[in-house]
Design a protein around this nucleic acid. Sequence first.
DNA 1: CCCAAAACCTGAACGCAGTACAAGTTCTTA
DNA 2: TAAGAACTTGTACTGCGTTCAGGTTTTGGG
Lengths: 215, 215
Amino acid sequence: MARTGHTAGTPRCSISAVMGLRERKKLEAWRTIRSTALRLISERGFDAVSVEDIAAEAGVSRTTFFSYFPTKEAVAFDLDPQALAEWRERVATDTDDRPLWPALTDLYVDMATVLAEWLPVQKRVLQQHPGLTQSARATCDTFAPDLYRWISRRTPDGDRLLTSLLLNASMAGYITALEVWDPADPLDVLLDSVRTCLHRVGAGLAAPEHSPSTA
Amino acid sequence: MARTGHTAGTPRCSISAVMGLRERKKLEAWRTIRSTALRLISERGFDAVSVEDIAAEAGVSRTTFFSYFPTKEAVAFDLDPQALAEWRERVATDTDDRPLWPALTDLYVDMATVLAEWLPVQKRVLQQHPGLTQSARATCDTFAPDLYRWISRRTPDGDRLLTSLLLNASMAGYITALEVWDPADPLDVLLDSVRTCLHRVGAGLAAPEHSPSTA
DNA sequence: CCCAAAACCTGAACGCAGTACAAGTTCTTA
DNA sequence: TAAGAACTTGTACTGCGTTCAGGTTTTGGG
């Protein structure tokens, strides 16, 4: 959103043809509010910026702000609607011909890729304000339902415990990679880390290498 | 706190001898506020109870409420100071002679045991108000630092990624067991579930049984 | 037993998040 | 181009969380 200039007048490919004026304006407003918010928060810190500040700076009323974002934290952590739609498309059209765990790993890598642009900013905000860790997890909860459906589609025995376990454990791997990642590092480092974490969880954490007495 | 009557005048063992009057009153106030809050929330639902209601019903001022609990959600999810202290004692005095993963599993089982009394209530509140799932995770964050230290003590190579991964993945197992547990079931069901989940995570979730194409 | 210091409780006032609603404005569609 | 749907806005309200000055209770030393 900073480097590439497709924020306002540069619609990408055929999307603007499909979307009406109304929908385009909405997306534009969403992005204006978000980027304004991230800028102010980066400058002053999360607590020192009020919703009123953000709304005013974005040229919109406080009421409108809350029609776009349910909470103040959401403006920092919600996913771009278009990026989310793209990722959902990938998940929905995913073929079932690969083993579950590697395929699941790729979905997380895709997600990190989709989020690439603003992930460093989010990370920096979190570093400055650790109390928001919960909100960061809430970001994951946005796509958790999609992943749950995807997983349960592939565990036909209907084992709810197993399905939830696969979801939560894989997400733990993803979150761990995010936690340890330094936003100054390039994205590839994060992606490798995601793969590593997911692989380790998949391979089993009780493996001999981690148990001192059985090494 | 309901069945056994050690709330007020029946101090258990030597604890009251160690604690001064001041400290004893504090703990008592803490428990009065908490139980009052849980009662009201169970009756009316989380959103329909204000902090003012709870404070009034507990015979304490609103300001005092916030001196005991940082937020309204905390009154439903914070851990009993004494129970927390007992668990911390167990963690600190734990011997290092067993393999990591089974020992870690036991710590989670211990935790569930310590929380046994109010876990069903908490679970019911969450069922009625799914929006509080985040707060439930915040409960885990209370003892996350202790677990982190415990784990890193046993991963001497100082691998931060591995340490965090062990923490997050094991916690995912614990949370999964909690999620799937029905509060109407006895505690043993939960404890078994915790053990099962942790064991599966430890054994590796990418095992053949879960991968359709390699089965 | 008494007195000072410390810890605690309280009421009042404040800022801000989030909601509800009625009135106005802009886009759509027929 | 007109009816209607969708969006925006100002206003008013509830309730969370903080601050602070002043009163009360506990503690510990003399």
